[in-house]
Design a protein around this nucleic acid. Structure first.
Lengths: 186, 186
DNA sequence: ACATTTGTAGACTGATTAGTCAATCATTAT
DNA sequence: ATAATGATTGACTAATCAGTCTACAAATGT
């Protein structure tokens, strides 16, 4: 078992349940089954652990977003695939997705450099910019577009998490809400 | 000067800057210009202070949302008024709005009873339900509708806060994004 | 074989924190 | 006037926490 990963996994779980500062490093170490010093061997400070966890989780999401997105499909189908993948991942990794949101609306987010944020958003913005260039997506600032899409997804995810839906019902909601979003931006 | 209010004001500022647990009650008291004991005289625990601050801030927003919303206007105009008011308030009270979001995506949100959340959302849901009944708004679960609208507003607010826009430019963005939202739900 | 680095452990510490307490001060009611 | 209640103070404490330190074990390179 990889202790470094075990620490991240446990930290995620506890941060989501209790919050960043209400989760002592000692508790993370104990529940991860490692010694106190081991945690600080891998992560020099608690902040570093939190930032590493965010980077790790965010990249896992990004990877999944673009899974099986063949470039041959139409822009709409590619976009729908990304949309669906994102919501699927969020539903299957609720704690992870919640953690990303929790982190993003916390002072820790300020520790990430603007460059890193820009770099992270770049591929998505390029994709959207292309959609505008080929006159499929309405002309508007890509930043605005990007934010609207992200918020929409966050909203759908929140709704899906608020109750227990059967899988087909859930699929139906995702399809219909995608149509709402797609109609809004095209 | 009202010390109780001074404590809330200072707590808001510090929570937004440093986070809940990274803000000691001693610091709040000192910066609010009151003694340590005074803080605990008004709020038995730190949690109680945090919850009181959330309730206070949320109710200030709700109050502003429905300001000058005459019931004589069309549903669209009333809705637009609420929409515009909300974004205006968020822009003029950035720390407050950010605090609400920060609180909502933190474990503290779990301390609020479901009844309280339901009660809080009731008037908004009723308004939307009415819009569906008179066949102005598309038929869909009001919870979903409500979440989509909230997310949309959060997104627009985030975009407006990301750069400095001139007042007319800002008004234009609000109007256009309202149209996007309105077209999406009707 | 041996040296060097890397991983792991857990007791320990100095600093910090939420909350208490006993004592005044201010205000209001009788 | 006097009692009673509420407001305010700041020193104090018991608990907790992030991070250190020393020691040893495992792996890796030479």
């Amino acid at each position: 078992m990889d202790k470094k990963e075990e620490i991240l996994k446990t930290a995620l779980k506890l941060f989501v349940e209790f919050g960043f500062h209400a989760t002592p490093t000692s508790k993370i170490a104990k529940e991860a089954g490692v010694a106190n010093g081991t945690l600080f061997h891998y992560y020099k400070t608690k902040d570093e652990l939190i930032l590493a966890l965010y980077a790790h989780t965010k990249s896992r999401l990004t990877e999944y977003m673009y899974a099986n997105a063949s470039k041959d499909e139409s822009l709409e189908l590619v976009f729908k695939s990304i949309y669906t993948n994102t919501i699927e991942w969020a539903q299957e990794n609720k704690a992870e997705f919640y953690f990303i949101q929790q982190f993003s609306t916390s002072p820790f987010y300020g520790l990430i450099t603007p460059e890193e944020i820009t770099k992270q958003a770049k591929p998505h913005l390029d994709f959207l910019q292309d959609g505008i260039k080929v006159a499929v997506i309405k002309p508007m600032p890509v930043d605005l577009l990007y934010t609207l899409i992200n918020s929409h997804i966050a909203g759908i995810n929140q709704y899906l998490s608020s109750q227990e839906f059967s899988t087909p019902k859930q699929k139906k909601i995702i399809n219909e809400s995608f149509q709402l979003l797609w109609d809004m931006i095209t």
